[in-house]
Design a protein around this nucleic acid. Structure first.
Lengths: 334, 334
DNA sequence: TTGTAAGCGTTATCAG
DNA sequence: CTGATAACGCTTACAA
């Protein structure tokens, strides 16, 4: 796509009757230019429609200002909200987000990181999937920072931000027991990501500790439809569960809809349901779902604060948030 | 954020024992390199972890490969889905998306376009808001392409993609009348965007043409909560409407929830409801909403196909899609 | 404070 | 097919 060239600093300099370095300095925060020179440069720039070329600037400074967001299933409510928070915070910090969609093929997280390297992104934030260790090492070696959100926790080098999934799951067991429930179930997808599995293990562990058996069912991707299928499976059993913890709100919405419209169950009277994420729909009155709020804004703030930090060698760092339990009417006796 | 320098083509050339131009050619699709040279270069690049610097390449070629996506309220289901489709198509076309969040201040669409210019984006796609005419002219003059999705239709130069909102609204009137409804209402937000207003005018116009009066109510931003408020207003009237067309699905979800849980109305027996967008939630069984499907994938394909086109001076172009009516149970007698 | 000059990593041009 | 050389638009010593 051939483009007519944009206005360059050279042309601005000529029009303003100064050197090109004067122009450069005018647009470099904290550089020393006399008010008079600055005025003439700004005037000429305005008239010509000049804008600093960040490609060239990035080349010189070895700092592009770009931060890659690597995401799959980006249109799901939780992911979309996290992207919103991240772009917001990045822009506040003077950075700009490059969004890479990894829905397509396998190994596409690695491909996405390659793209990040090509554009000399200052950092990459991974919201989905796990990259190969060799490629993360390449990023880190080249001074590119890495942030892993709700990913595996055993990599060294990147900033790892996680939730206390297991502890939260334990709180659900307590809530269910207080509500008088005894036949607990956990509804999970087959995605098998660390955070989903931590919720499952936390729930099962806490229930066992209280001497309660737990039914565990897993099915398909982490979405509404899987929630319906899981309801199909769990609610047709002879001894029907009276409380279900769904690994995410999306699963919970599907589960509740099937429980109500297909099995004619009353929630929370005959069945208590809890979810995780606190997506917007959880607050809709059709669901009014008890769930855990992911602190997306704090996550985004933490991630951005770390990656804009000026340290030469950023200390290996791991952050763990405790999600807030949001009580709503899908569980008895809040 | 000072970074250790990445590996350069120079270093690869030295290790492979060839010139730097040979390296460049190896990574330029369609350039002529002998198999032997290519092999040695690739091997050296692999070993060193070399990746072409797209900042420098963009500088030379005057084509960055970056396309800006300018969006506000990006976490709403419809927008999030459009972003997903756009990133998908852009990546297929060898481009990469830069995502700019314009939630913050007024005039931030202009700021976003400035950012697009600084990064020498090949194109910008505007999903929300309207930029100032002077700034769009600046973009176009500099050879940056512009796509407006569901925006005002009277700008010259950009590709404008719109839906046939008014015609669709007319089809809703027909559907309502067939269902035996006579007291029609339109529930809108106060956003006043061209597409929302076109739906309103189309609905009112078609109803008038059939001799039916229409109640129109507008409130707040285009979201779930506004839908509830609109239900409050329209369902407390003496002569309650028996059919409501909501300007978007999000409004419709809020409206339905209030109608059912607060006013104890049965849908569609006592009230027919239709929406627009066909967001994922519209298909959830709590809503099962009759609505219009925005052809997001076709929109994205059309936009990307146009902006990667090699034409020197892209012809002024306007595309109009006819959304499909998705019949579900919120309107009687589909 | 200002201008000059060198250099960032590429690609395009043009001999060989 | 290959290699030298000249841009691209910018920043940044360095010298004035």
């Amino acid at each position: 796509m051939p483009q007519k060239p944009f206005v360059s600093a050279q042309e601005v300099a000529e029009r303003a009757g100064v050197s090109r370095s004067a122009v450069s300095r005018t647009f470099t925060p904290g550089a020393s230019v006399s008010p008079e020179t600055r005025r003439r440069v700004v005037e000429a720039a305005e008239a010509l429609g000049y804008h600093v070329n960040h490609l060239a600037r990035g080349l010189m400074r070895n700092e592009s200002g770009i931060v890659c967001l690597i995401v799959s299933e980006m249109s799901t409510p939780y992911r979309a909200n996290l992207i919103r928070a991240m772009t917001q915070q990045l822009q506040n910090a003077g950075k700009v987000a490059m969004l890479i969609n990894t829905d397509r093929s396998d190994g596409s997280v690695d491909l996405a990181l390659r793209q990040a390297i090509r554009y000399r992104a200052d950092a990459s934030i991974i919201l989905s999937g796990m990259p190969d260790r060799s490629i993360t090492q390449l990023c880190l070696k080249n001074g590119q920072r890495l942030v892993l959100i709700n990913r595996d926790d055993d990599q060294q080098g990147p900033l790892r931000i996680n939730l206390d999934d297991a502890e939260a799951a334990g709180r659900v067991v307590t809530a269910f027991v207080r509500a008088g429930c005894r036949r607990l179930a956990f509804a999970n997808s087959q995605a098998g990501t660390p955070s989903l599995m931590a919720r499952e293990h936390g729930f099962v562990g806490a229930a066992k500790a209280m001497g309660l058996p737990v039914l565990v069912e897993r099915h398909g991707p982490t979405n509404y439809e899987s929630g319906r299928v899981l309801a199909q499976r769990l609610l047709t059993l002879g001894e029907r569960p009276d409380a279900v913890f769904c690994a995410t709100d999306l699963l919970a919405c599907g589960f509740m809809d099937a429980a109500r419209h297909q099995f004619r169950l009353s929630i929370p009277d005959q069945l208590c349901v809890a979810g995780f994420d606190d997506i917007e729909q959880a607050a809709w009155s059709s669901y009014d779902l008890t769930t855990f709020a992911q602190p997306v804004d704090r996550i985004a703030r933490e991630a951005v604060a770390w990656l804009v930090n000026e340290r030469e060698e950023p200390a290996d760092h791991s952050v763990r948030f405790r999600p807030d339990l949001v009580w709503r009417s899908s569980v008895r006796g809040g």
